[in-house]
Design a binder for these strands. Structure first.
Lengths: 183, 183
DNA sequence: GTCTATACGCTGATAGAC
DNA sequence: GTCTATCAGCGTATAGAC
């Protein structure tokens, strides 16, 4: 953390702490300490802790690239993306968002960022019946896996062969991507 | 709320408030007020707010019945169960658990109750390859749908024809239930 | 304008008197 | 057993120093 302007230093510190510790466990005072400034300054610059959260915790930048890949292997590719998310901030960001999910504005953010970065791009690429709806259901499968793997972190899941998860879960997603008509 | 013993009155009030408002937004003082007793009594009886939460917020009682049904239609039945969850407390309980998910002990609870009530019973009923793993992946799909429908509450999803969701998502779950070997 | 110092009303939790 | 008094810490607001 070199000599950044205070506003950027606060943003940096806030992102790190929110993603690492969640919303409730991250205090304004801790952010200020990590940024090397006064707690009051945090509020002065961003209005509130919640506003700071909404401004700092970002959507994933890698996801659009995955969603732009070939549609016939997208199911498995999405699963690979989730399982490899330890190096990207996706897992932490998602956990942070869920940990603040009892706040209506943050639920709204969860919805809108999911739509902008996932549902929208995907709905345009899949054919068949109700693409808008099916894209949302694919998103549900996607978040379900993030949830199980990175939040609940079930040991059996975490120690399982990744290839097997990719096959099983990827094909289940693919099923939804390919299905043309509701039976 | 008739004249219950204080301990039970606290439990009742706590369940209602946690499920309705989430963990952080529910204060010990509000629970005490709803139970008609002193805030200190709440802590005195249960040790802490978190311990009260863990003792109070229950697992779903209806789920075992669904999981005991015929395996060949279980996918769609699970989806019907989720979509009808407004009358059961499942949706609220799940939201409450997620809203407290930055607490390690509550994540542990999320994991254990998911295992006891879902993964365990299901793994015993499905054949094929890695039933333990596949049961967990089905659970991931299941929670993903709860998440999308009851927490994020995407309007498109909420206003969609339930039968269509049952067909699409149910068949994707069924795919995982039926799959015998990873490709 | 940028920042610090201070304070307010809330929270979960504790100690000790009835 | 139950309530009163009180604690330290929280998010937040404001007054005023540089």
């Amino acid at each position: 953390m070199p000599n950044l302007p205070p506003r950027d230093a606060i943003r940096c510190a806030a992102t790190d702490l929110f993603v690492r510790d969640g919303y409730a466990a991250t205090t304004v005072r801790a952010i200020a300490a990590a940024a090397g400034c006064d707690p009051a300054l945090v509020i002065r610059h961003f209005g509130s802790k919640e506003a700071l959260f909404l401004e700092t915790v970002p959507a994933s930048a890698d996801l659009p690239r995955v969603l732009a890949g070939p549609i016939e292997s997208l199911g498995r590719e999405l699963v690979r993306f989730v399982l490899a998310a330890s190096e990207s901030p996706v897992a932490g960001v998602y956990r942070a968002l869920l940990s603040a999910s009892d706040r209506p504005e943050i639920r709204e953010r969860l919805r809108s960022s999911m739509h902008d970065v996932f549902v929208g791009p995907l709905a345009n690429r899949i054919g068949g019946h109700s693409p808008e709806l099916r894209a949302r259901l694919v998103a549900a499968q996607f978040t379900g896996l993030i949830n199980a793997y990175w939040l609940v972190a079930d040991p059996v899941l975490r120690s399982a062969d990744r290839q097997v998860i990719v096959s099983f879960y990827g094909d289940a997603i693919q099923r939804l991507l390919d299905s043309a008509d509701p039976a």
